[in-house]
Amino acid sequence: MSDKVIVTTTVNGEEREATVEPRTLLVQMIRESLHLTGTHIGCDTTSCGTCTVLLDGRPVKSCTILAVQANGRDVLTVEGLEGADGLSPVQEGFQEEHGLHCGYCTPGMMMTVTALLEENPHPSEDEIRKAISGNLCRCTGYVNIIKAVHYAARKREGAAA
C-alpha cells in the first residue's frame, strides 16, 4: 500500500526528481527532498500562507497540495526569485522598504506579490491588500509590505522602460 512515487518537477527552472510517499506534501518535498528551505511551514493548516509557492505561475499553499500533484508541473520558490543580475524587484522592495520584521512570512509574501505584479503591474493599495489577504504577517501591520510592493512595481516599470 502507498508505494513510493517518483515526482519530476521543474523547480526554479531546473528539472528535479524526488522519491516520495503519496502522502508527502509539496512543502515537505521542497524542504526535505530538494533541500530548499526558503519555503517555510507556518500554521500547517492552510491558514497562514507562509508556505506559498507558485505552481504553474499561480500562488498556492504548498502545505495543502500533495507533492505528487506537482509532477510534471512548474514550481517557483523564493530561491528562484533572484536573477543573474541580483535581487528581483520584489526582493529589493522588501529590503529597501523594510517589508518585514521577523521575516518568517516573507518568502510566502514575496511569492504572492511576484504573481500579483505579473498579472497586475500597477496594483492599487486596495488591490495589494486583497492579493496578500491569504498571507499573514504578525509583525509589520502590513504598511511596509505595501510600500515594498509599490517599490517593486516602480522598479519593474523602470526596468521595462
Binding site: T52, K61, S133, G134, N135
Partner: peptide, 8 residues
C-alpha cells in the same frame, strides 16, 4: 476562503 486557496 482566501486568494491562495481560491487558486486551487
Amino acid at each position: 476562503a482566501d486568494p491562495l486557496i481560491r487558486n486551487r
